[in-house]
């Protein structure tokens, strides 16, 4: 397994364990957790608190009989078939999508060619927006592809922003971010990411409030980001 260097905030890990993250943030965390053992351990620790709560919670009364459910239980043979079936599912995904981020695959339109999926928003920057109603609670869930060496406009946030690097890398005031790394930014942080030079940087970005760009030229770009 890889060992990412930048991780989600522990407050974000706790909310993941509690089941209270927005759908977009959860999707991003699912991908990071698939490649980060240290966050898996932390999540397991706070999930254990969920288990304790479940045991402490007052039992509700079940009105239906268990018999209906017992009749639905799969036989051992059916269970085996179920397991075999799951093992054979191979998701079809674009080559830039790493193995650990396959959970993003269902949200990509596989009917379209890869180059048509990406929508150009500014010189050197293109995006794929996830507009499904599932992400209604997020302000925006999107993939951004940034050409090598491209400098993003300096921006702050009125809400939180989560970024997961899928390919390539970028650097900003807070460090260098490579594949698997997560930048979990508080609202008060302003930053100016620059894609590193070797390969395009592809990242998943989930925001829960509109980005605020500084200066009038970047403000002109705001509509292009669709925020």
């Amino acid at each position: 397994m890889m060992s990412p260097k930048h991780h989600p905030d522990e407050a974000t890990l706790l909310s993941y364990a509690a089941g209270s993250l927005s759908a977009g943030a959860k999707l991003l965390l699912d991908c990071h957790l698939a490649c980060c053992e240290s966050c898996q351990r932390k999540v397991a620790q706070v999930e254990a608190f969920g288990g304790e709560l479940l045991q402490a919670i007052p039992s509700a009364v079940m009105h239906r009989s268990i018999d209906q459910l017992l009749a639905k239980l799969d036989t051992p043979e059916q269970l085996q078939a179920l397991q075999d079936g799951q093992a054979n599912v191979k998701p079809h995904a674009p080559e830039w999508l790493p193995e650990w981020a396959q959970q993003l695959s269902p949200w990509l339109d596989h009917e379209q060619k890869d180059k048509d999926l990406w929508q150009r928003v500014a010189p050197g920057i293109s995006q794929i927006r996830f507009d499904h109603e599932r992400f209604a609670a997020d302000k925006a869930v999107r993939l951004l592809r940034i050409a090598p060496g491209t400098c993003m406009p300096k921006h702050g946030h009125s809400g939180s922003e989560l970024t997961l690097i899928l390919q390539g890398s970028y650097s900003d005031e807070t460090g260098r971010f490579c594949a698997g790394d997560v930048a979990d930014l508080d609202p008060d942080i302003k930053h100016q990411p620059i894609a590193d030079r070797d390969t395009p940087c592809i990242c998943l970005i989930v925001t829960d409030a509109p980005l605020r760009f500084e200066g009038w030229i970047p403000k002109l770009m705001q509509p292009f980001f669709g925020l």
Partner: peptide, 21 residues
């Protein structure tokens, strides 16, 4: 502020980690 929610939960995480982890 959302920053206070995050810093509070961060502290709570540490405490839960100590008591359950």
């Amino acid at each position: 502020p959302i920053g206070s929610v995050k810093s509070g939960l961060r502290l709570a995480f540490k405490k839960l980690q100590q008591s359950l982890g």
